[in-house]
Design a protein around this nucleic acid. Sequence first.
RNA 1: GGGCGAUUGGCUCAGUCGGUUAGAGCGCACGGUUCACAUCCGUGAGGUCACUGGUUCGAAUCCAGUAUCGCCCACCA
Length: 891
Amino acid sequence: MTTTRRREPAPRYDAAAVEPAIYERWLASGAFAPAVSAPRGARRFVITMPPPNVTGALHIGHALTVIVEDVMIRYHRMRGDDTLWVPGVDHASIGAQFVLDKIIAEEGESRATLGRERYLERMWQFMDSTRDVIGLQLRRLGASADWGRNRFTLDEQSARAVRVAFKRLWDAGLVYRGEALITWCPRCRTTISDLETIHRDETGTLWTIRYALADGDGSISVATTRPETLLGDVAVAVHPEDHRYRALVGREAVLPFLGRRLPIIADAAVQREFGSGAVKITPAHDPNDYAMAKRHELAAINVLDEEARMNENAGEFAGLDRYAARQEIVERLRASGDLQAEQSHQMVVGRCERCGTVVEPRLSVQWFIRVKPLAERALASVTQGRTAIMPPHLAKVYAHWLENILDWAVGRQLWWGHRIPAWFCPDGHVTVSDAAEGPHACAECGRPAGELNQETDIFDTWFSSALWPFSTLGWPDETPDMARFYPTTVMETGYDILFFWVARMMMMGLFCTDVEPFRIVYLHGLVRASGGVKMSKTKGNVVDPLDLVDEIGADALRFALTIGTSPGHDQRLTQAKVDGARNFANKLWNVARFVLGSQPDSGATPSGDASVAERWIRSRLAEVVERSTAQLEALDLAGYAATAHEFAWSDYADWFVEMAKVELRREGASQGERARVWATLAGTLGDLLRLLHPLMPFITEEIWSVLRDAAPSLTDGEELLLTAPWPTPGPRDASAESEVSALTALIRDVRNLRSESGVAAGTWLPLFVAVTGDAQRSAIERGIGYLEPMARVRPVQFATSDQRPALVAATPLGAAWLGVEAAEVAAGVAAGVEHDSSERRARRVVELRAAIDRLRTLLGNASFVERAPVTVVGKERARLAELEAQLRQLR
RNA sequence: GGGCGAUUGGCUCAGUCGGUUAGAGCGCACGGUUCACAUCCGUGAGGUCACUGGUUCGAAUCCAGUAUCGCCCACCA
């Protein structure tokens, strides 16, 4: 469906009818890609888009990301900066396998039945169907990314970057392999990082279990929340200064079921107050115990397999699931009388962020990256200001994490991802190679490649993500893109992945390229549902951005999310906000309809001096352009949105258009004068469209195309608003601003008077005006033309300051007086005031009478004031004092 | 246990360097049948700026403390 130039555009803006064709025009223009070479003297502005997960459906968080970035990108493109926005998708190892596992389960298959190779084939096949989906969805939001540079974290360029980066780390001695207790998800069957573990307070049970002493003389009791792990116990520990147990240290306890002898050791890490004061030591399944076992040179015994079932070390319990084993063990201990206590217990439980399964500490051999030296540089970059974090307070959070960082366990026992480029030779040598085909021979003993076996672990997804800002530009090659666009300008992403991603990009960026990968980190917040609660599928309060696009249009969604965004702070997306945004789009549509529909047919050359209203709107525009520009430069997008919104609705539509109507419809206006007013109307609209384009690209582009046809000279003949220049602020006009602000205040006062006194809407009010000087006189005279139709008053008399004004209306001019004379109006006012029974009215009557009394005194002309009943406009007491002061001056 | 953020009309949020009468949108009340728009226009009511103390000629804003809510980090079995 193509949009046509309807002669009579619909009164309601229909986004769905307009948006798709416009996006096609943008794409066809090729303007999303930067020019072949950078414009001379241009600033660089580059964003690498955070790659959404390849399997993920678009959610509101993606929408916020892409909208915020698109606003920045479009602004800089219009500024003429050398602008690039690189899009891409992430292979998301765990996430993708989680999704695919579910799919193949429905087909009756599993990882085990398919095997690695067929599983990966199946995954690539699945990718074919999902890989482009999210990009297409982002386009519906208007994302003006350079799709020609679209990238995938698992494509060959990325693979190469991963190999080279890892090889360099290896060569620098920053990679090691070692046994460690890592966090394991028994359902995903892989290592996960602490960051991927959700720690929550949960209620569990604390069991107290009696272990007999080996010499048959007494027993010692230990407390545990995980009785099944006792099968892996290697010792019992007490505090060295705990007098209760001093005699037992050095003796042995007997492990139930297995009969293993457990030395009773003393270690200061034991908390005397907790439980019985004695703790079982299970090095393979608890980090504290592991550390303690190392201190006491005790071996670890692993009793769980990769799916958290008891393994062969668990004796008769082998094969049981951990929870089944727990129950069985508790029952048996209870039966034997060795279960001494059982109490409900508040504890912290770690669960896999992906699947919610309770994680297990697991002893295994892992690849680690020694991150301390990398972290130090990453920290210095921020503390020394080479990279700024917005909001600034998150820099402290960033610093705290980097200062306490632990080595990065970078291997994952998964299949979908970059396989670690390390080969083992039968003699145990390790060869790391960055060649696509792997090493030719063992680096240490020279055995041929055929005898080497590659590591089966893959990299943590975040390893390839950490290289993203430069792997997307061709690194490790010194490509033209690297030279021209790196380092990037802004890294815009959610604060929830500050550690996962941002910190790691900083570390790897500095290590690989010796420069900070971006100048500014802009961290947006979460989009929450109405009550401030998180959106979640289980709560059913998830807002689908594409539904909103269908409903209100991409522009309105963009406006709604931008007006609420502030770095580091969450925002709520409420129906009211959505409605407001839709209404704003509609307002723009209609004001444009008016402007385009009011073009004089004469084709006359504009003539005459600009009216005060014209001078005013130009001056306002100048200010607004200046402010918006400053706000966009400072990445204050919400401020920019508010500035532009206020100007469009209040200044332009509510005031200037109304004033322009007066001028366009004034009898006796020449064709040239009308043409001039229209040119201001349309020209201002043109600049407003430029101003709003980064925020609401579709509707502004659509209006632009019509405006361009109607008035090519006003739009500089620019074919596409997308690439039209950002407006430059013109000169301010202080006198026009003060005249119009006086005028609008006067109009408001008259409307107030009418509203408060109940004078019928259609009634003309006579107006007396007294002025204190020529400047004000001419200001009022210029304004009178607008005052008549806009306030429904008719000037009856001009008075100079020595004449007595009748009734009072305060305005910033300080000397405009409004008089109501007509008998019927007076009666109406009196009746309205006297007979209203409400308390508020009653209070007002008192105040009005007081005001009248004072005016009487001041004016010294009681009869005149009585004849023309007085209503004081405005804000009662303070205002009245002001009036009195002015009156005194007048006399 | 540490750290961070928030607290401004009924709701959602602005508020610049400390400076005149603290703003906006929504909601509410009242009024509006004119050819851009009722997804509209006009007018109005409504705020002790969480609390306490301090600095200052002057505090929503700076400092200290308190409260409530939220988030992040942290190995007590």
